[in-house]
Amino acid sequence: TFTSIVTTNPDFGGFEFYVEAGQQFDDSAYEEAYGVSVPSAVVEEMNAKAAQLKDGEWLNVSHE
Results as ranks from 00 to 15, higher is better:
residue 9 N to F: 09
residue 11 D to E: 09
residue 14 G to S: 14
residue 60 N to M: 15
residue 17 F to Q: 02
residue 13 G to E: 12
residue 52 Q to E: 10
residue 28 S to T: 12
residue 27 D to N: 14
residue 55 D to N: 12
residue 12 F to S: 06
residue 34 Y to K: 08
residue 49 K to A: 09
residue 56 G to R: 05
residue 1 T to K: 14
residue 22 G to Y: 06
residue 7 T to F: 05
residue 61 V to L: 05
residue 58 W to P: 00
residue 52 Q to K: 12
residue 2 F to M: 03
residue 42 V to Y: 05
residue 37 S to C: 13
residue 58 W to I: 02
residue 16 E to I: 09
residue 37 S to T: 13
residue 64 E to H: 14
residue 24 Q to R: 13
residue 25 F to L: 04
residue 4 S to L: 08
residue 42 V to C: 06
residue 12 F to K: 07
residue 36 V to W: 06
residue 43 V to I: 13
residue 22 G to K: 06
residue 54 K to M: 09
residue 35 G to M: 06
residue 24 Q to I: 11
residue 18 Y to M: 04
residue 3 T to D: 05
residue 6 V to S: 05
residue 56 G to P: 02
residue 36 V to T: 05
residue 45 E to A: 10
residue 42 V to E: 03
residue 36 V to K: 05
residue 46 M to Q: 02
residue 53 L to G: 02
residue 20 E to L: 07
residue 31 E to G: 09
residue 13 G to R: 10
residue 42 V to W: 06
residue 10 P to C: 08
residue 37 S to L: 10
residue 2 F to L: 04
residue 23 Q to P: 00
residue 2 F to I: 04
residue 13 G to A: 11
residue 22 G to Q: 05
residue 18 Y to F: 08
residue 53 L to D: 02
residue 27 D to A: 15
residue 43 V to T: 10
residue 61 V to Y: 01
residue 28 S to N: 12
residue 29 A to K: 12
residue 17 F to T: 01
residue 31 E to T: 14
residue 57 E to P: 00
residue 1 T to N: 13
residue 53 L to H: 02
residue 27 D to L: 14
residue 46 M to I: 15
residue 10 P to L: 04
residue 5 I to E: 11
residue 63 H to W: 12
residue 49 K to R: 13
residue 20 E to Y: 13
residue 37 S to A: 12
residue 9 N to S: 12
residue 51 A to F: 06
residue 26 D to P: 03
residue 16 E to T: 12
residue 26 D to M: 06
residue 28 S to P: 04
residue 11 D to A: 09
residue 64 E to W: 10
residue 22 G to N: 06
residue 54 K to D: 05
residue 62 S to L: 10
residue 28 S to L: 13
residue 62 S to D: 03
residue 12 F to Q: 06
residue 39 P to C: 07
residue 17 F to K: 00
residue 47 N to I: 05
residue 54 K to G: 07
residue 46 M to Y: 05
residue 48 A to Y: 11
residue 3 T to F: 14
residue 1 T to L: 10
residue 59 L to N: 01
residue 41 A to Y: 14
residue 13 G to K: 10
residue 36 V to R: 05
residue 14 G to F: 06
residue 40 S to L: 13
residue 5 I to T: 14
residue 43 V to Y: 06
residue 22 G to M: 06
residue 20 E to W: 15
residue 22 G to H: 07
residue 43 V to L: 08
residue 15 F to E: 10
residue 45 E to L: 11
residue 13 G to P: 05
residue 34 Y to M: 08
residue 40 S to D: 09
residue 54 K to R: 12
residue 21 A to Y: 12
residue 34 Y to Q: 04
residue 9 N to R: 09
residue 57 E to G: 02
residue 7 T to Q: 04
residue 14 G to N: 09
residue 18 Y to Q: 07
residue 16 E to K: 15
residue 38 V to M: 05
residue 35 G to T: 04
residue 3 T to P: 02
residue 26 D to K: 06
residue 49 K to E: 06
residue 18 Y to W: 08
residue 32 E to K: 15
residue 11 D to C: 14
residue 47 N to E: 03
residue 22 G to L: 04
residue 53 L to S: 00
residue 51 A to C: 08
residue 51 A to T: 07
residue 47 N to P: 02
residue 52 Q to Y: 08
residue 42 V to G: 01
residue 31 E to P: 01
residue 13 G to L: 10
residue 33 A to T: 11
residue 33 A to H: 11
residue 61 V to W: 02
residue 1 T to R: 14
residue 52 Q to L: 14
residue 64 E to V: 15
residue 12 F to A: 06
residue 44 E to L: 10
residue 33 A to W: 13
residue 10 P to S: 03
residue 48 A to F: 12
residue 52 Q to T: 10
residue 12 F to M: 08
residue 8 T to P: 05
residue 26 D to N: 12
residue 39 P to H: 02
residue 58 W to G: 02
residue 45 E to I: 11
residue 3 T to E: 05
residue 62 S to V: 10
residue 26 D to R: 06
residue 23 Q to W: 08
residue 12 F to L: 09
residue 46 M to V: 10
residue 28 S to C: 12
residue 45 E to Q: 10
residue 50 A to Q: 01
residue 10 P to F: 03
residue 61 V to Q: 01
residue 63 H to A: 03
residue 45 E to Y: 10
residue 53 L to I: 03
residue 44 E to G: 08
residue 32 E to W: 11
residue 16 E to Y: 15
residue 5 I to R: 09
residue 53 L to E: 01
residue 43 V to H: 04
residue 10 P to I: 05
residue 5 I to K: 11
residue 28 S to Q: 14
residue 42 V to N: 02
residue 45 E to K: 06
residue 61 V to E: 01
residue 31 E to F: 15
residue 25 F to N: 01
residue 50 A to I: 08
residue 35 G to W: 05
residue 29 A to H: 06
residue 8 T to F: 07
residue 64 E to Y: 12
residue 20 E to N: 07
residue 54 K to Y: 05
residue 38 V to E: 01
residue 31 E to L: 13
residue 39 P to N: 04
residue 46 M to R: 00
residue 45 E to T: 07
residue 30 Y to H: 01
residue 20 E to Q: 14
residue 4 S to G: 12
residue 9 N to E: 12
residue 58 W to K: 01
residue 5 I to N: 11
residue 3 T to V: 12
residue 56 G to T: 04
residue 5 I to P: 04
residue 35 G to Q: 07
residue 6 V to L: 06
residue 35 G to P: 00
residue 23 Q to E: 09
residue 37 S to V: 12
residue 64 E to D: 12
residue 28 S to M: 13
residue 29 A to L: 11
residue 57 E to D: 04
residue 3 T to N: 09
residue 16 E to W: 15
residue 28 S to V: 14
residue 33 A to R: 15
residue 18 Y to E: 00
residue 51 A to G: 09
residue 19 V to Y: 01
residue 43 V to E: 03
residue 58 W to S: 02
residue 60 N to P: 00
residue 21 A to C: 08
residue 18 Y to T: 02
residue 47 N to K: 07
residue 47 N to M: 06
residue 31 E to R: 14
residue 40 S to P: 14
residue 13 G to V: 07
residue 53 L to Y: 01
residue 47 N to F: 04
residue 58 W to Y: 10
residue 34 Y to I: 03
residue 19 V to S: 00
